[in-house]
Write a protein that binds this DNA or RNA. Structure first.
Length: 575
RNA sequence: GCGCCCGUAGCUCAAUUGGAUAGAGCGUUAGCCUCCGGAGCUAAAGGUUACAGGUUCGAUUCCUGUCGGGCGCACCA
């Protein structure tokens, strides 16, 4: 509502000053200044208009400021500052009413409707169902689940999905590995495949198999399918349980085999062909200059089916059907994204691991070749995680089956703390995860800092309730303490923070904001006695504290982190 | 050789998608509890934003080049 008041006020001011141009408002940027001395909202409108108006920016700003009609219920002043910024400041009446409005809004405070029902599908984790989930998956799960919640909170129709690669050779190999482990269990000779899965978890899986059925499958020639299906089902159930315990649930687990069985893969190939994006050849028509003749076997081979990705931003055309007639991995992937679009999703946000970034151009190119919108696919790379303990990097080798799993991490530092740490940093940056710091339940741990602020407020509210005091407005108006005003102004920015985080697909803005918000509350609490002999003041300050509680809780909820009413007090260290 | 990501305080990272005097935490130093949770607060110190150019009212952000780190360049999945 503040936002619309501003845009409409500026629209009127533009019309009145004769500076209006239709495009000016489309490009209008409203922002919350970094420095609170610059007001509660700011716009660079005059700076962007100066050139076309052929007047100095400050003169344009002065004219707009003079023409802007202030609604005293919201704004107290509009000032021209710096090179020509327009800074707006909330009125005392607005700030005095805000805590009550936030508390009344409850869990709806922070939500907005700009997404306007646009359907978005967030695909995340999508790890191969061949082993336990690792820490990069844990990071992706925290980010993906938070993105879905952020998008939903901003009016989008968002859903999370897990893509199960159950059609490739890896799952066959998994089945063979499980068969070998079961044979081992019952004393039948059968070697583990050369590149089979070595992990201990397959022994556990083998131990859980129903012996009679498994023995029968072992004896049959076509028993491999039975082991394959058992292995897949049990592995998926395992991943599903770990993710659910971690707080990541999905609207759908999409299995790749569905695409093959339904004919969607072939239909996609036909669709590409119909658009003239397909050709058959021994060599790609478009390939990087530094790579001709690299494929020395080309002449001795049958023709393969190429997709013209080179015409859509990729550096070369890509094979979609091999010369032996089998589709490459790319084709079902294209079919999968075609399916997403066909289901009505306007945006597909994919979270991929760091080793797949080279795959982005060809995937985007393929979808363009298919005729999908340029902004349909958005890929976020979830960067690598380095686990640190005692200042040393924890060695992880997937090949040797030595890596820290999602489950182990949860058991070690707790799901709340793990999620908070993963969400604190921007997704595209490498993350150093300090296990020692995460294990520490004290002031050095930022996850506890925010949770503590929430618990502290809850405690104050309980204390007040025992004295018969409740949050309520103070008829005398805005609290004169600067710390109280600063806190209210901080709380006021929450919806804009959520909106920005969703729009930029940057969940880390939430924990960053919450830490600032908690700090602002602690400052307020330290400077302003909440429960005092002044009943009216107590009511008002309880209302401010209650508003802070709502914002902290809503922010933590977006991250999937709990907001405790109580936390165990630090015990006196006896050392 | 080509491409992508990154380089910000001693360390880990922010900086509202080009905004105003680049900010937090940890660590260091000096302070603050008769009272609502000290898992807290206040203050100090710490910077040529890797480097050199360019674009403009304005650059940590965009462009070019150099240096340094990570990753990727299959008719694998």
């Amino acid at each position: 509502m503040v936002w619309t008041a501003l845009t409409e006020g500026l629209r009127a001011a533009l019309a009145e000053t004769g500076l209006a141009s239709g495009e000016a408002l489309d490009r209008l940027e409203l922002a919350i200044p970094r420095d609170s001395a610059h007001g509660d909202w700011t716009t660079n409108l005059a700076l962007t208009l100066a050139k076309s108006a052929k007047r100095p920016p400050r003169a344009v700003a002065e004219a707009l400021a003079a023409a802007f009609r202030l609604d005293a219920n919201v704004f107290k002043s509009v000032e021209v500052a710096g090179p020509g910024f327009l800074n707006f400041r909330y009125s005392d009446a607005f700030l005095a009413r805000l805590p009550g409005a936030i508390a009344d809004g409850g869990e709806t405070f922070g939500r907005s409707s700009g997404g306007a029902g646009v359907r978005v599908l967030v695909e995340y984790v999508s790890a191969n169902p061949t082993g336990p989930l690792n820490v990069v998956s844990a990071r992706a799960a925290a980010v993906g689940a938070t993105l879905v919640r952020l998008l939903s909170a901003t009016g989008h129709d968002a859903a999370g999905e897990y893509y199960v690669n159950d059609a490739g050779r890896q799952v066959e190999l998994l089945g063979e590995s499980l068969a070998a482990r079961f044979a081992e269990r019952v004393g039948v000779a059968r070697a583990l495949p050369a590149d089979g899965y070595q992990g201990e978890y397959l022994k556990e899986l083998a131990a859980a198999l129903p012996e009679k059925d498994a023995r029968a499958a072992l004896a049959r020639d076509d028993g491999a399918a039975w082991f394959r299906n058992e292995a897949l089902a049990r592995m998926l159930e395992w991943q599903r349980r770990d993710l659910a315990d971690y707080g990541a649930t999905y609207a759908r687990w999409f299995q790749e085999t569905e695409l093959h069985d339904s004919g969607a893969v072939q239909a996609t190939l036909a669709a590409l062909e119909a658009r003239g994006a397909i050709y058959r050849a021994r060599q790609p028509e478009i390939a990087p200059a530094d790579r001709p003749g690299r494929d020395e076997d080309a002449d001795g081979r049958e023709e393969a089916t190429f997709l013209r990705t080179g015409r859509f931003g990729d550096d070369m055309d890509r094979v979609v059907v091999k010369s032996n007639g089998a589709p490459t991995y790319l084709l079902p992937d294209i079919a999968y994204h075609r399916d997403k679009r066909a289901r009505g999703f306007r945006h597909a946000i994919d979270l991929w691991g760091p080793d797949h970034h080279g795959y982005i151009p060809r995937m985007k190119a393929a979808l363009l070749a298919l005729g999908l919108e340029e902004d349909f696919l958005e890929v976020l790379i979830v960067q690598q995680v380095n686990l640190l303990s005692a200042g040393q990097q924890v060695k992880m080798s997937k090949r040797a089956g030595e890596f820290v799993t999602l489950r182990e991490l949860m058991d070690d530092v707790g799901p709340d703390c793990a999620k908070f740490f993963f969400l604190m940093r921007s997704t595209s940056a490498h993350l150093d995860f300090d296990l020692d710091l995460a294990r520490r339940q004290n002031d050095e741990n930022p996850a506890y800092y925010v949770q503590y602020a929430h618990a502290r407020i809850a405690s104050v509210l309980r204390f007040a309730a025992e004295k018969g005091l409740q949050p309520a407005a103070d008829a005398r108006g805005l609290d004169e303490a600067p710390e109280a005003v600063a806190l209210i102004r901080k709380l006021a920015t929450f919806p804009e923070i959520v909106r920005g985080a969703a729009a930029a697909r940057e969940p880390h803005r939430i924990p960053t904001y919450l830490v600032e918000c908690a700090a602002e509350f602690h400052r307020f609490y330290h400077a302003c006695r909440v429960v005092s002999d002044d009943a009216a003041r107590s009511h008002a300050r309880l209302q401010i504290a209650d508003a802070a509680r709502v914002v902290l809780r809503n922010g933590l909820a977006l991250m999937g982190v709990s907001a405790p009413e109580r936390m165990a007090r630090t015990e006196e260290v006896v050392s």
